[in-house]
Amino acid sequence: MRAFDPARLMLLAWRVVPRLPRALVRGIFDVVAVVAHTLRIDGVKQLERNLARLTGTTSAPELRRLSRAGMRSYMRYYAEAFQLPGMSEAEVDARVRSTGYEQYTERVAQGGTAVLALGHAGNWDLAGAWANRHIGQVITVAERLEPPELFEAFMGFRESLGMVILPLEKGGGVFRRLLKESRRPGVIPLLADRDLSSTGVDVQVGGHEVRVAPGPAALALARGIPVMPVLIHYERLTGARRRAARSPWGIHIQFLPEVEVPAAGPGVTSADRVAQMTQDWFTAYTRALAQVPQDWHMLQKVYTADLDPERLARARAQAEET
């Protein structure tokens, strides 16, 4: 008998879920979230450690409440991601509310590019489907999934919406490809609130150190343009919008103030400028995220206090050598 294969189960869900009634899918995934929370799986425990640092909360009952809401938000994302191929444009539009994006629509229309720094919060796939039609062509990076059919299914759907998807591969030169693609009009949203590799940037937020991906800041610096933090979180829907969305939940895409490229100067390296931009955008992002912490889908270790000290030391040493 073959061992249980989560990837194959995801591929099956990708094919089947879009055909099922919306309410049934929401119910199934919500039950999965509640069961996982009740069983106190490792991801739930790590989520609580992350939420405690993000919010400053030390109350165990409050953390349990937040992590329960967090797991329901997390599984809501998966339910919606699997449903996305079956959503109409009108349904997507009803589920999305965006604030502060108008200037970027104008920038893209004039031939410019917007580099967006996102975290694993809300539903970034739904946001991408909306942005691709309302702001400009979305160009982003996707980590390869196994089996290949699963990755091809996700990639094929996103590309059918007009998005440009660059597979993330070791030694694949994805940054160079991003830089090339950024020469044409569009928006480049990059998930960047976690990076445990040697390229990760250590930033201080709320008295805690977090290892964050440098991609958005490095790309913005290379292009000489600002980086824009964007927070995506869930909101309850009512009335006509709820009926049009066919869901009690929608998302709010919140464009935060731009982070400008730091000035160059004697003794200031490109790495210094990337680190400063990363610190600035992530500080603004987590300040906003702390208002809706239940929508941060971070079930992995991200604060350096939780990381393996030896692995972290090797990553830092490797970074100093390059």
Rank of each mutant, 00 (worst) to 15 (best):
G119V: 04
R287D: 12
V164G: 01
L312P: 02
L179K: 00
L312V: 05
P229T: 01
A23T: 04
R243C: 00
T283H: 12
H120I: 11
R8F: 00
E258L: 13
V259L: 07
V115G: 04
D42A: 14
V205A: 08
T58C: 02
E91I: 03
L11H: 14
A271S: 13
R26N: 09
S182V: 05
D30C: 08
G173A: 06
D5Y: 04
A52D: 05
G173W: 13
E258H: 10
V261P: 06
T113D: 05
A36W: 10
A69F: 03
Q103L: 10
I251H: 08
R273S: 00
R236P: 03
H120P: 07
A3K: 15
V227N: 03
Q276I: 02
S160I: 08
P18N: 07
G136F: 09
R311W: 10
A117G: 14
A218L: 14
V174K: 07
Y104I: 07
Q276A: 14
L126A: 04
Y234H: 10
Y303L: 06
T283I: 03
R40Q: 15
R19W: 11
A275W: 09
V44G: 01
S198A: 14
R177Y: 13
R211W: 02
R53S: 08
Q254R: 14
V205I: 14
F157K: 11
T140P: 05
Q318L: 15
T58V: 09
V32F: 15
D308S: 08
A33N: 08
E62H: 05
N50V: 06
Y303H: 07
P293S: 04
R22T: 06
N132T: 10
L24T: 12
G186H: 05
A90V: 12
K170H: 14
A305D: 09
L63N: 11
E62F: 00
L126K: 04
V227T: 09
Y101G: 12
E320I: 11
S98L: 10
D306Y: 00
G239I: 12
T57F: 00
L168V: 08
P85Y: 05
V201L: 03
G171T: 05
L191T: 09
T322E: 12
A271W: 11
P85A: 04
G239D: 07
M75R: 11
D306F: 01
A81V: 13
G111M: 06
Y77C: 08
A264R: 13
V96Y: 06
R64H: 15
A60C: 00
A305G: 15
R68M: 10
G239A: 09
G207H: 05
P147N: 02
L9C: 10
V138W: 02
P214C: 01
E102D: 13
P18S: 05
D93L: 04
V138C: 07
Y74K: 07
E149I: 12
R95P: 12
W130N: 09
Y101M: 12
A69Y: 06
R184Y: 15
R236T: 13
E143P: 10
L63S: 08
M298Y: 00
M228R: 14
D295Y: 01
V210D: 08
V92S: 09
A90K: 06
G250T: 08
L312I: 03
Y101F: 07
G171F: 15
A3V: 14
G128Q: 02
L54S: 09
R19Y: 12
P309M: 06
V212A: 13
L179N: 10
A305W: 00
R76D: 04
M277G: 01
V261R: 04
G86Q: 05
